[in-house]
Write a protein that binds this DNA or RNA. Sequence first.
DNA 1: TGCCAGGCCGGGT
DNA 2: ACCCGGCATGGC
Length: 228
Amino acid sequence: MAAENLLLRIYDVLRSAFGHRGWWPADTPFEVMMGAVLTQNTNWANVEKAVGNLTQAGLLSATGLSEAGEDEIQRLIRPAGYYRQKTARLRRLAGLVLEVCGPDDASLEGLRALPLEDLHEKLTSLKGIGHETAASILLYALAKPVFVVDAYTVRVMARHQLIEPGISYADLQAYFEDRLPTDVELFKDFHAQLVEVGKRYCKSRRPLCSSCPLHPLLGDPIEPDEYL
DNA sequence: TGCCAGGCCGGGT
DNA sequence: ACCCGGCATGGC
């Protein structure tokens, strides 16, 4: 079932190669939200340690993060790096959850009921929540149809000359959202597929391997030097 | 052993 | 409107 749309053909190829990715790996939407902060410029394995520490300490909740001591949270999330900044960011997010959802609403239903524009504004107005973290929370924690763009997205698309390397976040996000059906499950898995192909075949400043599953569809990629 | 990882902020140009 | 240094740990 070859799609007529280039992005959908790319998705089909990746999906066939890697299978459904099952993103975002977490037990609750609240955990997704906190993971979105912890994973900022950080290896996922380190994030898992931090999440595990918070869970074991019984602090992975809006009240837990709000009421625990600053230094205790810092100690627990230290493996995820930037632990001083991230502690403040987690607590700001926890404050928003408490305010909108009330205590211990790990489902975030109260937030999800708000209009998308309001949510985007509330999230990005928090210090430490930028465009990408906000998009990740909106899509993976709140099931809103927002396409998540990250460094891998830019790398994979730029190396195949499908976009300009210097494209802005908003423009690249619009590029996907304008060309794809508005489908939350598609957005979730497509972003995960782009991360997967990026991790395997499109590491920063290394040539793209010709065994990349996108090679037959998109042809020879350009070298990293040509856009880095 | 340096480089990199599922970024963001604040200050400078 | 961009560009840059700083933030921090752990794995390859």
